[in-house]
Amino acid sequence: MLTQIQQKILDGRLRVGDRLPSERELGEALGVSRNSVREALRVLESMGILSAQVGSGRDAGSTVAGRSTAALSNLLRLHMALSQFSQNDLVDVRIELERLAVARAAAGADVGDLERLRALTRAMAEPGMDYERFHELDSEFHIALARASDNALATDLMQALRDAVKGEMIAAFRRVRDWDVMVSTLTEEHLAILRAVEAGDGKEAAELVTRHIKGFYAAVGDAQE
């Protein structure tokens, strides 16, 4: 059941917005019980592939949704835990992804993108910033850069990667000896990246984001010693 629906999506026979037949019709067509159909639909809904509406009206039933970012985050988090990737692997991937994002953002960010990034840096500068709030703003800043690159896949990958390492990032923040200094440093680095993007200097933005990421992980490593 799962495999058959997934294959239809891969083949292009099911697209976002398409409605699936009823549980009874699916069961009859595939030769499986309604319980099996219901369980498969639940799995696909949890993956963000389907959106289910209960009831018996015109809008009831399952529709192809295409909301896969949360599922991608969960899968990536599990894969990272099981595969035990090194921190160097994570840093390398982040750098390449974010260099691409800021370079493209510098070439094509619109007014709304830039205002969103400015608002995030202003929020980071507010006094009394705690670990979780700063992580939320920090993550959204990097995701907003990816979104400004106008590359949907880069945006989804960035969102998934940031979600997957959320626990590790907050734990890293807690290990920092002088949290206020760290917040100030990271915020200034974000501002420098934003200025380069605003100036349309993709090369400078890419170099700044590289130093930003490497510097953070170096500082966190020092805090553990």
Score class of each variant (00 low, 15 high):
His190Phe: 05
Ala106Ile: 11
Val165Ala: 03
Ala196Phe: 08
Leu186Asn: 00
Gly221Val: 05
Gly167Thr: 10
Gly200Pro: 01
Gly221Gln: 05
Glu140Asp: 08
Arg67Asp: 13
Leu20Tyr: 05
Leu191Ser: 05
Arg211Pro: 10
Gly128Ser: 03
Arg24Met: 02
Glu45Ala: 15
Asp201Met: 05
Met124Pro: 01
His190Leu: 12
Ala101Arg: 07
Arg19Gln: 14
Ala105Lys: 04
Gly61Met: 04
Thr3Asp: 12
Arg104Cys: 10
Glu98Arg: 05
Gly215Asp: 13
Glu115His: 01
Ala107Gly: 15
His190Gln: 12
Ala125Pro: 04
Asp163Arg: 12
Arg15Val: 13
Leu194Val: 02
Met80Pro: 06
Glu45Val: 07
Gly128Asn: 08
Gly48Arg: 14
Leu26Pro: 00
Leu117Met: 04
Ser36Thr: 15
Val183Cys: 04
Glu45Tyr: 11
Arg67Trp: 06
Leu41Ser: 05
Arg13Met: 07
Thr210Tyr: 02
Thr121Arg: 08
Thr185Lys: 15
Ala109His: 03
Asn74Met: 12
Val102Cys: 09
Ala70Thr: 11
Asp11Ser: 09
Leu117Ser: 03
Ile49Gly: 06
Ile213Asn: 06
Ser51Asn: 10
Ser83Lys: 10
Gly48Cys: 12
Leu90Lys: 10
Ser33His: 00
Leu78Ala: 14
Arg94Glu: 14
Val183Leu: 10
Leu30Trp: 14
Gly57Ala: 10
Thr185Arg: 15
Ala81Lys: 13
Thr69His: 08
Leu76Gly: 07
Ala154Asp: 03
Gly48Pro: 06
Glu132Thr: 03
Arg133Trp: 03
Leu41Asn: 03
Leu44Asn: 07
Gly221Ile: 06
Ser73Ala: 11
Val183Asn: 09
Met1Glu: 02
Asp92Ile: 03
Asp18Asn: 13
Arg24Ala: 09
Ser68Phe: 09
Ala164Asn: 03
Ala106Phe: 14
Val209Gln: 09
Met169Leu: 01
Arg177Glu: 15
Ser36Gly: 08
Ala171Cys: 06
Leu75Met: 14
Pro21Leu: 14
Ala60Arg: 01
Gly48Asp: 14
Ala152Lys: 11
Glu25Leu: 06
Glu96Arg: 15
Lys8Gly: 00
Leu114Met: 01
Asp138Pro: 05
Arg34Gln: 13
Met129His: 10
Ala40Arg: 04
Leu90Val: 12
Pro127Gly: 02
Glu189Val: 03
Asp163Gly: 03
Arg42Ile: 09
Met182Phe: 15
Ala107His: 01
Asp138Ile: 08
Leu194Gln: 01
Arg116Val: 00
Val209Gly: 11
Asn35Gly: 05
Asp89Glu: 12
Arg99Ile: 05
Gln84Trp: 05
Trp179Gly: 02
Asp163Asn: 14
Gln84Val: 03
Ala71Lys: 02
Glu188Thr: 13
Ala125Trp: 09
Thr155Trp: 02
Arg15Pro: 00
Ala160Tyr: 06
Lys203His: 05
Gly221Tyr: 07
Ala70Gln: 11
Leu82Asp: 12
Leu90Gly: 02
Gly112Ala: 03
Leu194Pro: 08
Leu191Arg: 15
Glu140Gly: 00
Ser149Trp: 09
Leu30Arg: 08
Glu188Lys: 13
Gly200Tyr: 09
Met158Thr: 15
Leu20Pro: 07
Gly202Arg: 06
Pro127Leu: 08
Asp18Tyr: 04
Val176Ser: 01
Gly167Lys: 04
Val197Leu: 02
Leu186Glu: 10
Gly61Lys: 09
Val220Pro: 00
Arg24Thr: 06
